[in-house]
Structures are given as C-alpha cells and as structure tokens.
Amino acid sequence: MDEARPETRPGTRPGTAEAEPPPVLGRGSPLAAEPPAAPLLNRVAAELVGTAALVAVVVGSGIQATELTQDVGLQLLANSLATVFGLGVLILLLGPVSGAHFNPVVTLAEWWTGRKDPKGPGPREVAAYVLAQTVGAIGGAVLADAMFGKALVSWSTHDRSAGHLLLGEVVATAGLVLLIFGLAGTGRLRFAPVAVASYIGAAYWFTSSTSFANPAVSIGRAFTDTFAGIAPASLPGFVGMQLIGGVLGLLLVALVFDHRRAAGSR
C-alpha cells in the first residue's frame, strides 16, 4: 500500500483488514475497501459517471417496467431489482477510484466525521463531489429518457409531498448512513457492494417513499415524468428530510459504534 499520497481525498481508509485494529470512524471513504490513488479529476469523473449510471438504471428500469405491465407491484419489483444489481456493480467498479459515494449526504457525512483529520476530505473536494453527483444524476435521467424515446427533459408531475413520504425519506437515509459508516467502523467495507445494494432494495419496499435517500438522485428524477420521477415542488421537502436523515444516521453511528472509536484511540 502506497504511503506517499500527495493529496487528501475521500476514499482513504487505512487498515480495513479483519486482523488489524478496528479503524477509527471518520478516517476514510465509506465504500472503498482500498485507498484510491486517483487524482481528484479522476475521482470526480467516477462520481459523475457512477451517479449518472445509477439514475439511468433507476429511471430506465421504471420506464421499461411500465411498458411491460400495468401491475404497480410488478413495476416496483422490476425497478427495485434493477437498482439493486446496478448499484452493486457500480460500487464494486468505482469504489476503488472515488469511494462510490454517488450521494451528497454520504459525502457530507464523510466530511463531518473526518473534519478534524488532516487526511479527511476538504471543502474543495466535497464541493467537487456534490457538483459531479448532481450533474451526473441529471444526465442519467436525460439519458434514460432518450433511450426510451421520451422527451429529453419533461418535468415530473409525480407529487411526493405527503408527510408520511417525508418520514420515509428520513428513515431510509438514516439507515443508509448507519450502514455505510457502520461497515467502515467495523472494518467490513469489502461487503459494501452487496450490503448497500441490498439495503436500498429492501428500503424500496419497507419505506413509504421507496427510498430515494439521495439529494442528487432526487434532483435528477425531477427531470423525467415517468415512473421514478418526483415533482420539482416536492424536492425541497425530500432533500431536507434526506439531510435530516443523514444527521440522524451519524448520531446512530456514534451511539452504536462509539465504543470502537474509543478502543481504536487507545
């Protein structure tokens, strides 16, 4: 493992092997089991491409499902299965490059947990990641619409402003952050592709909101008036609840795994 890394970056977490002491929370990337050696430009490109591909999978599978069946249950099943498989592959492929955040909440949570660590991500990196994720999400929605012969940009009319849906977003996002940083804190990042994809697939079904859990993806899905869309007027509520869910998730991480941080600092 190369010790001479000239940059600090999201995605650096030394010693995730089981035989080593448990890593200290907040000292590395959530989804990369190996520290990436890529420059910031490559990492930002990976976040843009990964988020675009994720949204293309979510939106495209939703369009395909509605064209194949009128059964809403089957539509959701097809949409969730495609998302599980697509997300798992993307994390496996791009995690070693950028950490495979694909989510501003994850990026912000990593910045917060590593803010006192000189190896943690800085504001410049966080801003670059969030911008890439948002642009990628919009591009992925436009690409999905193009593949199915839809208008490239058609604002969604799918209202998702009900209070129970907003609660679902808090739960979905808090659970996602707890899972990711819990894996990081216990040295089990190698399971991230399966674990995170499985959680999102489950949350499609056990949350009322079908688990967007991602501000960038939510913004991208506003650009398509299809099965996976969300009306622009519903975005502020969803994004706000996702941020609250991220904070709650970090509080749960501290509550559940703080003993490991204390042990690692001795």
Rank of each mutant, 00 (worst) to 15 (best):
G187Y: 03
R160C: 03
E3S: 14
Q75W: 03
R266S: 14
T157K: 11
S29T: 11
G28I: 11
G168E: 02
Q70P: 00
A254E: 14
L92G: 12
G139E: 04
E67K: 09
A37C: 02
F181M: 04
I63H: 03
D71V: 12
M241I: 04
A19D: 15
R160W: 11
V24T: 14
T107W: 01
V171D: 09
I244T: 11
S234H: 10
G28D: 14
V239H: 11
V49M: 12
A195K: 01
S98E: 06
A127M: 15
A37P: 02
G237H: 10
T83Q: 06
V130T: 12
E67R: 13
F148W: 13
R5Y: 09
T207H: 01
P118L: 10
A228E: 05
L81H: 05
V256N: 08
R115P: 01
F102V: 03
L40A: 14
A202Y: 02
G120H: 02
A146K: 13
F212S: 06
H101C: 08
E125H: 04
G175D: 03
N214I: 01
D258T: 11
A262Q: 12
G168W: 00
D225L: 06
L252C: 13
I180F: 02
T224I: 00
S154A: 15
L81S: 04
W111M: 06
F227I: 04
A231G: 03
G237Y: 11
I180H: 02
L81Y: 09
F227A: 05
I180M: 10
G245C: 11
V84I: 13
I138Y: 12
T16Q: 10
I219D: 04
T224G: 09
V247G: 07
S29F: 12
V58A: 06
E3P: 13
E67I: 01
L179M: 09
G60N: 06
T66A: 14
Y204F: 12
F191H: 06
I63G: 00
P6R: 09
A222C: 15
P118W: 11
P193K: 07
E34N: 02
E67G: 05
